[in-house]
């Protein structure tokens, strides 16, 4: 079990329920692949340092979760399919994380 963190940059025009459904979908993928979401931290709309897809503002969401390594390929495949996700970055935080539950 490894601990990962994904920072997502979402379009500011997304309505809150589409955004919630998108995030629920991603969390569903994590659960389905045998992972567990620890923290879902929404930073809200922030100004971007440079225009992304002609937008100067974006909605940031940070997901922290544990799971096996294979989970990432599946999760990123879903992120790429999803609409309204401009950018994302996945970082491994910790290696051997024992199951806390």
């Amino acid at each position: 079990m490894r601990k990962f963190e994904t920072l997502l940059l979402l379009s500011p025009e997304l309505s809150s329920e589409t955004r919630a459904s998108l995030l629920a979908g991603l969390k569903g993928v994590v659960e389905r692949e045998g992972g567990k979401v620890i923290v879902e931290d929404a930073w809200g709309i922030r100004d971007l340092a440079y225009p992304v897809k002609k937008q100067m503002r974006g909605f940031y969401v940070r997901l922290e979760y544990t799971g096996p390594g294979a989970l990432i390929a599946e999760l990123e495949r879903n992120i790429r399919i999803a609409e309204g996700v401009f950018k994302f970055v996945t970082v491994k935080l910790a290696d051997a994380v024992e199951e806390v539950a």
């Binding site: 940059l9 971007l48 340092a49 225009p51 992304v52």
Partner: peptide, 16 residues
């Protein structure tokens, strides 16, 4: 990484 996530600028004057 922070440049990629648009938290920091790549260059001061952007092409656009």
């Amino acid at each position: 990484r922070s440049r990629q996530m648009a938290l920091m600028i790549y260059t001061a004057t952007h092409a656009c």
